[in-house]
């Protein structure tokens, strides 16, 4: 009997918590379907419902060009994801499978570099890019790609390294005896065995630019043509725009959140697959 009461209480608690956690998400969907303009209304529920916010988000592009921001972010995310995955998998492989003279030193340097506030480097990067003339026009997007792919993000190779660590050394040794070069071991043995963690790395690198706010804010600045989605949506909520664009912000947020959330949940799945190791016993 006591156990039953306890179980009921636990489930009630979980339901209440779930409602709290789902409330903001449900709320933004509701706002995106609201017909009345403006950020603040006197009623909690909308008086009229409409899909217009979504259609206007994609058709009325004179002030806020959402399709273009979407394209910008997609290009940046794709390019930086390819570069970053290549970098991260390379470092992780080298640090995990190979033993060479300066290895420990490099690992310690990575550890220390990881402790710098990311955008201490970023603000400096902005001035360096400005000095090199990379902050005009489309070059902004190029520099954004380089910063995402080549910046502090590649210091997050520990997850992939931890995964490579679980691949038995005997596999490499057997291949060595058969005359394989280390490059062949890397491409023919390690990579095929590491599918979950490589997918995880690709997805993390791809999601990053969609969610990042600060790097693109600093590098893109006020040039609306090259906004990424995050900056654009943030701008819709600025004082001068919020009345006109509040409901459209909500529909934009929904449009971005659904695909990203799906990708994120996939990523989590590959992450847990990765945690259980490469060669299952």
């Amino acid at each position: 009997m006591r156990r039953l009461i306890k179980n009921i209480l636990v489930h009630i608690l979980l339901v209440v918590l779930s409602l709290i956690w789902l409330f903001p998400l449900a709320w933004v969907i509701m706002i995106s379907l609201r017909a009345e303009k403006g950020s603040y209304t006197t009623t909690f529920l909308p008086k009229h419902w409409t899909f217009k916010n979504y259609t206007r988000l994609f058709s009325e592009t004179a002030v806020f060009d959402f399709p273009r921001w979407f394209g910008n972010t997609l290009i940046v995310a794709l390019c930086s994801c390819i570069l970053a995955t290549f970098f991260i998998v390379s470092i992780a492989y080298v640090m995990s499978r190979l033993r060479f003279k300066s290895r420990k030193l490099l690992l310690n340097i990575c550890l220390i570099l990881g402790m710098f506030p990311g955008f201490m480097a970023m603000i400096a990067i902005y001035y360096i890019l400005k000095g090199m003339g990379l902050t005009t026009g489309v070059l902004k997007l190029v520099s954004l790609i380089l910063v995402y792919a080549g910046g502090a993000g590649i210091l997050n190779f520990y997850v992939a390294k931890g995964f490579f660590d679980t691949i038995p050394k005997e596999l490499d040794e057997a291949a060595r005896i058969d005359g394989a070069t280390k490059m062949q071991i890397f491409t023919k043995i390690t990579i095929p065995l590491s599918k979950p963690i490589i997918v995880y790395t690709i997805l993390t690198a791809f999601i990053g630019p969609w969610c990042d706010f600060i790097f693109s804010k600093v590098i893109i600045g006020t040039d609306a043509k090259y906004y990424t989605v995050a900056i654009g949506l943030w701008n819709m909520l600025q004082k001068e725009n919020v009345y006109q664009f509040y409901t459209r912000f909500a529909s934009g947020a929904v449009c971005i959140s659904i695909p990203i959330a799906i990708l994120y949940i996939f990523m989590q799945k590959y992450y847990t697959d990765g945690l259980t190791g490469a060669v299952k016993g």
Partner: peptide, 10 residues
């Protein structure tokens, strides 16, 4: 997990 899957800025 859904609540962290949505981009944080949103």
């Amino acid at each position: 997990v859904l609540s962290i899957a949505v981009p944080q800025f949103v």
